Computed example of a mutant assay.
Amino acid sequence: MPGRFFLTDPVSDLTGALGVPAGTVGNEPARQNIAPGQEIIVFDGALTRMRWGIVPVGRVNARGRPVMEQIINARSETVFDKTAFDGVGRAVIPVNGWYEWTGEKRKKTAWRIAPKGGGFLYFAAITDVWTAPGGLQVSQVAAVTCEPNADVAPIHHRMGVLLEPADLNTWMGEDLDAVKALMVPWPVGRLQIEEAVGVNWDGP
């Protein structure tokens, strides 16, 4: 949908793929299990770090009621219509892939989803800044989701909106019609899906 990411290629590979410097991001060890609430590398024209999950303090729904739950994924069908998303920015979450689960509780199977041939996937995302108690400002990000393609549909009813490298600037640009045109399922046949084994779900 996604519920967990992984980023295992070196940051230097990412900077080369995007043609940008690492800036303040620096390097980091391979991360097999990135969970909501953790910091993640984000591209918003430059590489930076943001907290995965938008704490919707001060945001209200269409009825004027406070939004209470943390937002880690936002539906593409409503992300530009809901009052809860007023004023958000747009960025990209670059990762090597993500995980989904199938099966009953305590008998779930984890699936690892990555691009065929390796490399990066670029998830469309929205951003926000939360002013925490004491005045600390926390940059936050949430992935945008859409209907699944035929590859992902057997294991989940949603998938992240994935972007071609050539479309990253369009996603972060001012042409809203062009942005909306990108929020479609990824072409079939370009993902490798296999059972995830050997992942420590309690650690990085």
Rank of each mutant, 00 (worst) to 15 (best):
V88D: 05
V179Q: 11
G189W: 06
S76D: 10
V92M: 06
I155S: 00
P10Y: 02
N27A: 15
V55K: 08
L176N: 07
W130E: 07
G203E: 14
G89R: 06
Q38E: 11
W52V: 01
P10V: 00
R49T: 08
V25T: 14
A143D: 04
L162E: 05
G198M: 02
T48H: 10
E147F: 09
K107P: 08
T24S: 13
G203D: 13
D44Y: 12
K107D: 14
T131W: 07
T170W: 05
F6Q: 02
F6T: 02
G37E: 04
G19W: 12
L47S: 06
Q70V: 15
V11M: 13
P133F: 15
P115G: 02
T127M: 11
G45H: 02
Q32G: 13
K180W: 09
T48M: 06
K105D: 07
V79Y: 14
M1E: 04
L121I: 15
E164C: 11
G135K: 04
P133V: 11
A196R: 01
V184T: 14
P185M: 12
E147M: 13
G16M: 10
R90G: 03
R75P: 10
P21D: 15
W101V: 15
M68W: 08
G173L: 00
I193H: 09
A114Q: 10
L18W: 08
F43K: 02
G89L: 08
G64V: 00
V152W: 04
I126S: 12
